[in-house]
Each structure stands twice: as C-alpha cells, then as structure tokens.
Write a protein that binds this DNA or RNA. Structure first.
Length: 292
DNA sequence: CTATTTGCGTTCGCCAGCGG
DNA sequence: CCGCTGGCGAACGCAAATAG
C-alpha cells in the first residue's frame, strides 16, 4: 500500500542531502509507521490521497473535507534551525502545484496541513501523544492490545508448562526437556527441571498480574478522564451515563443511586467542585506513570 | 534529600529470506 | 531483480528503585 521504490529514496536524498536515505531505510520507516499505528486510519487515507493525486480528484476532495478537524493530529512546535528551515524551503515549491489547483478554502487548508505534516515527518518531529489518544478514545490502544496478546500467550505457555497429561506419569514438557538434555553432556536432574519450570511459571504469573494491573489502572484513569470531560461539558449527560447500569464493564457499585442524588443535590445548590486531581482533566490522557 | 542504577518500552537500522 | 517482511539488537528515554 505504501510501496517504497528507488525513486522515492532519490527524491528524499535531493530534499535532504545531509541524510543518507536508501530504499531499505524508507521501507523500514514505512513499516514501522504502519505497524505502530503512528497515524490513524483516517490520517493514512488522507495522506494516501494527497500523495497520489488521482484523476477523480473531485470525489476524493469532498471526502477529505468531510473529515472532522478533530481527527487531525495537533502539529508540534518545530524548533528553528537551519536544517528545518531548509526542509520547509524545499517543500515550498511543491505547494504551488497543489495550491494552484485548489478551489476551496477547505481544500487549501487540507493541503497546507498535509505539507506541515510532511515537514514534521521529514525532520522527525513527533506528533503529540494526547491527540492520538483522543482520536482513538473509543478504540483499544495499541499498547493495550499488545499486552493482552502477551497475556494470552503467557497463559497458554503456563497451560503447556503445567500440563500433566502424560505418559509414564510424567509431565510431557518435563519429558521433552529431559530428552533434549539427554543428547548433550549437560546433566540436569529432574528436581532441577522442576525447579526451573516452577520459577518460570511463577515469573509468568507475576507478569500476567502486572500486565492486568496496568490495564486496570489505565481503564480506571481513562474512565475518570471521560467522566471529567463530560462533567465539564454536559453534566446532564454525565448523570445519565452514571445511571446506566453498565458502562464499559465498570460496575456502578451498590450505592450508585445515593451517589448520584448526592451530586445532584450539591450541584443544585450551586456548589462548585474544588480543583482536585479527581475532577480536573489530566494534562495528558496517558498519565505519566502508565507506560504504553 | 540528590545521584545513580535498574527495568522496561520505544525507535530505528541492519540482515536474511521470501515471493512476485 | 526488487520490494517487503520478521527477527534481532543497539541506542535512547523515562520513571521507579536504590544507594549514598
């Protein structure tokens, strides 16, 4: 989909002679960007369209315009340097082609934005994390998927390691390991193997627990964040959502109705929340102590 | 308390191998 | 031949843990 050819690399080299870029580098970058989902699907689609000016320009342009602005990544502040200035200057002439064909303000805006993004990616400026998080607030973040995958694998491994279905009354895995060592000089007594297996299993279990904890902390935190956001924008909707019995598996707890009544009462009196961590939106969606 | 070490995740480049 | 991919490891960043 984002194929990389030799000519791509030579264009790059022309644009930024200080960087040694070959097809391999570019292919790696593309792969990395796609794999780690650095741009969302919508963004990728938009970049695709801008990179390949299609003959059916009208239809695609309409689509671009219909894309909600909030789906765009926020552009980072780019530090001034000779190199960065050179990159911008190199891209300027290209704009002429695109802007000349632009018939609408939205289109012009979109083209400029694409160019800014291109500058960012060329100079390696990172797009802020917070934006990506809001963009995919409904989707499961990539890091969480990774953790869940790992958990599944680890559980499967534990299952295999603890499997006692065997012949000779001996766990199959232990037997396999014994056979493997039988061919070598290394002698490993059975208690050793058992010890190692036990350690390994304990290790895996601890890891699973830690991963689970991490996911729970993140879920809790993002639930806070969403509620806080709703609280600030639309309290009615917040109360409604709290009344709903199940929201994303977060069970409301036994005294939920009391809590809601309590909040309503306070609010109807014109009471204002003190600014605490619990009722202010965090500066970043991912709290700094949660890795992702 | 500050300084450093450690652990973990991310980013990135290189390589070998695969398939059109 | 060419582009793409999986695997691997080095370098780096960040924050928690630990030492002094």
């Amino acid at each position: 989909m984002f194929g990389v050819s030799g000519s791509d690399a030579s264009i790059f080299a022309e644009l930024e002679p200080s960087l040694s870029v070959n097809e391999q580098n570019l292919a790696d970058r593309v792969r990395y960007i796609l794999r780690s989902n650095i741009f969302g699907d919508a963004e990728l689609e938009r970049l695709r369209r801008e990179a390949v000016p299609s003959s059916k320009g009208n239809a695609t342009m309409l689509e671009t315009r219909s894309m909600p602005l909030e789906n765009r990544p926020r552009l980072p502040r780019i530090p001034f340097s000779k190199r960065n200035r050179a990159v911008v200057r190199a891209l300027n002439p290209m704009l002429v082609t695109y802007l000349g064909a632009s018939r609408e303000l939205c289109e012009t805006d979109s083209i400029l934005f694409g160019a800014a993004l291109a500058v960012c990616s060329i100079i390696g400026a990172k797009l802020p994390m917070a934006e990506r998080a809001t963009q995919q607030s409904s989707a499961i973040p990539a890091w969480r998927k990774r953790i869940e995958d790992r958990t599944t694998k680890a559980r499967a491994l534990i299952g295999r390691l603890t499997s006692v279905r065997s012949d000779n009354n001996r766990p199959r895995v232990v037997r396999t390991i014994r056979m493997a060592f039988a061919r070598t000089n290394i002698s490993l007594s059975e208690p050793d193997i058992k010890q190692k297996l036990t350690e390994r299993i304990d290790d895996l279990k601890q890891k699973i627990a830690a991963w689970g904890k991490r996911i729970r902390r993140f879920s809790e935190r993002s639930r806070w964040f969403n509620q806080n956001r709703l609280f600030q924008s639309d309290q009615k909707r917040l109360y409604k959502s709290l009344e709903r019995p199940e929201v994303c598996g977060a069970s409301p707890g036994p005294d939920q109705a009391d809590t809601i009544a309590f909040w309503r009462g306070l609010w109807s009196l014109g009471w204002e929340l003190p600014q605490t961590r619990a009722n202010t939106a965090p500066s970043r969606v991912y709290p700094p102590y949660i890795k992702h």
